[in-house]
Design a protein around this nucleic acid. Structure first.
Length: 583
DNA sequence: GCCGTTTTCGGCCCGACTGTTTTCAGTCG
């Protein structure tokens, strides 16, 4: 059976992004090109299917999308192409778009190379550079040719610059920042950029520092054991590449502009654009060097970020919120949420032991959770039919419940284990334990682990059926996505969220850094709909209990407060929030 | 092409870097 799925946000965004480049090649005014790029960005990060919005005539509700873009999107959804793009593709060879993706080459240069040298593809580009024909053009020299060849070689060897999972980058960033802080000449050192914002993926690491001897600190980074290659280390910083291929930029500034630089390099780009546009309206100009009062020319330098935001009439904005999603308006109006913090989490509600597919025993996981300062830990093995690890048939789960009771009998005060399960949701929405057994458990998560390719409508009905089951307390990793590896399965998340709100079923933010599912967009939608959120580690060993930090990061990026996170409460309170306790 | 505490037209963030050029355009973050 073939399911025709509506076009995904990423596909719509790709089409608009390509059209932006085509317009740019065609010499369109800059702001039209920017409008298409911005629309592509907004669509790519939208938590709801934009195809659906467009069909309902609501796509212009998205910021940056007006009548013209609406028409283009509708044409794309109906015919699979955008007429304007087709027309431009008849004017330029489609491979010319690839030429603009070479770092350092933009659309204007690509257009000139096409017009003046007939370069229409990456192969043409290499030939022209190798033959020394590019230096014949006005404003181009031999250096340009060398750079083009080097970048073509790197593209061939490494492929396009890829983004990495936060969990691959964050430990490196923290280790390097800690090492620099140890240096006697270093004053303050901060991680900035997407790592500081705890984004799902990162391209590189930005470090910001002040120092009594900048060159010495830069040299310390260049000579760090993690550095495989380093640029020249000067008083203003340096750039290295780690052995794992991560690019790290260190920038060193005087203490009096440390806040300006940290704010600038924490971003996001969109946050800074909105911030600066607002500042312009107030007669101010914001840059990494300070805030200039345009009329008087007076420059205010800020040692801290708090001063930067205060100078602009804004409350301090947490890095996780700086994505240009309304945080600046909220900061101006004093209605920023007080974000949930790692220390608010009272217990973890999703983990595995050797009984299913974990690596550590029940006792080891319990001790580790207690040592973290948790008051409770729900042990939630996979059920019988998930298709990997050890199956846990009903009898084994009953023995596990006994084991948990016995452990609790000898447990130290202030900590308890909860008997739970991560029950597989069958293709028809059924669960693979009998209700009598589920009723004996303290905590039941239901998750999809099998049959991902069933179509949006059936998948939605399947999960809504689990949501409506009276003994399901929580739905695990709602969309099944694996960041950078596997798309979410087609699903009407809004309908599931509506059902969860209606039934009092909680939704999990799974802190496994590959998942972070709910995504921040879905988590924000769910919380706004009144759904209780649970932040978990989905730990499969003692060490990965630490993954809770990625779950908390997603919760913070979703604007969640402590009140909206159910496991920021003691178990007694949380237990009463379960729908089974309220029935 | 979008959008409105300077509203339906005229604006649209800011600076560094690069390579080329005697003052700047293009690109990037």
């Amino acid at each position: 059976m073939v399911f025709v799925e509506p076009m995904r946000n990423a596909e719509i965004a790709d089409a608009l992004s390509e059209l932006a480049t085509l317009y740019e090649l065609d010499g369109a005014v800059r702001y039209r090109v920017l409008a298409y790029r911005e629309a592509a960005r907004v669509i790519r990060q939208s938590p709801v299917p934009v195809a659906e919005l467009a069909r309902q005539g609501r796509v212009t509700e998205l910021p940056g999308i007006g009548k013209t873009l609406e028409q283009k999107i509708l044409a794309l959804l109906e015919t699979g192409t955008i007429p304007a793009a087709e027309k431009l593709k008849r004017k330029f060879p489609p491979t010319l778009v690839e030429v603009t993706r070479i770092p350092g080459l933009g659309a204007r240069t690509a257009r000139r190379l096409y017009d003046e040298l007939g370069v229409a593809s990456l192969e043409d580009l290499r030939e022209a550079a190798a033959a020394g024909r590019i230096r014949e053009l006005r404003g181009m020299g031999a250096k340009v040719e060398q750079n083009i060849l080097a970048r073509l070689d790197r593209l061939a060897a490494e492929g396009p610059a890829e983004r990495r999972l936060l969990s691959d980058v964050l430990p490196v960033a923290e280790e390097l920042a800690a090492a620099l802080r140890e240096h006697p000449a270093a004053d303050a050192v901060s991680v900035a950029g997407s790592v500081r914002r705890m984004a799902e993926t990162c391209k590189d690491v930005d470090l910001i520092a002040t120092a009594s001897d900048g060159a010495a600190v830069a040299r310390a980074l260049a000579e760090h054991p993690q550095a495989a290659a380093a640029g020249t280390a000067g008083p203003n910083g340096t750039r290295i590449t780690t052995h794992t291929g991560i690019a790290v930029d260190l920038r060193i500034v005087p203490p009096d502009t440390y806040g300006n630089l940290l704010q600038h390099f924490t971003g996001s780009a969109r946050h800074n654009v909105v911030l600066r546009e607002r500042a312009v309206a107030q007669g101010l100009s914001v840059s990494e060097h300070g805030i200039t009062h345009v009329e008087s020319g007076r420059v205010r330098r800020c040692a801290t970020e708090e001063e930067v935001y205060a100078e602009l009439g804004l409350a301090y904005i947490e890095p996780e919120l700086r994505e240009g999603r309304g945080e600046i308006e909220a900061a101006a109006e004093g209605r920023l949420p007080r974000l949930v913090e790692a220390g608010d989490i009272r217990g973890d509600l999703h983990c595995h032991t050797t009984l299913s597919d974990g690596h550590d025993s029940l006792g080891e996981m319990a001790e580790a959770a207690r040592a973290r300062g948790y008051a409770y830990l729900a042990v939630t093995e996979h059920s019988a039919s998930h298709g990997f690890g050890n199956a846990v048939p009903a009898g084994a789960l009953e023995r596990r419940i006994e084991e948990v009771r016995e452990w609790n009998a000898g447990a130290p005060r202030g900590f308890r284990l909860l008997a739970g399960a991560e029950v597989n949701i069958g293709g028809d929405g059924s669960l693979d334990y009998p209700d009598e057994l589920l009723a004996e458990l303290d905590w039941v998560i239901a998750s999809v682990h099998t049959a991902f390719n069933m179509g949006r409508e059936r998948m939605t009905e399947r999960i809504v059926a689990a949501v409506e089951h009276p003994l399901v307390d929580c739905i695990g990793h709602l969309t099944g996505r694996l960041i950078l590896r596997r798309d979410p399965y087609p699903l009407d998340a809004e309908r599931v969220i509506e059902a969860a709100a209606r039934t009092g079923t909680m939704l999990e933010i799974n802190g496994n850094p590959n998942r972070r599912d709910l995504s921040e967009g879905h988590a924000r939608m769910a919380a706004e709909a009144g759904v209780r959120i649970v932040v978990t580690s989905d730990a499969h060993r003692v060490a990965t209990l630490d993954n809770i930090r990625y779950g908390v990061a997603t919760a913070r990026r979703a604007w969640l407060t402590r009140r909206e996170v159910a496991n920021a409460r003691p178990w007694r309170e949380l237990a009463r929030l379960r729908k089974r306790a309220r029935a």
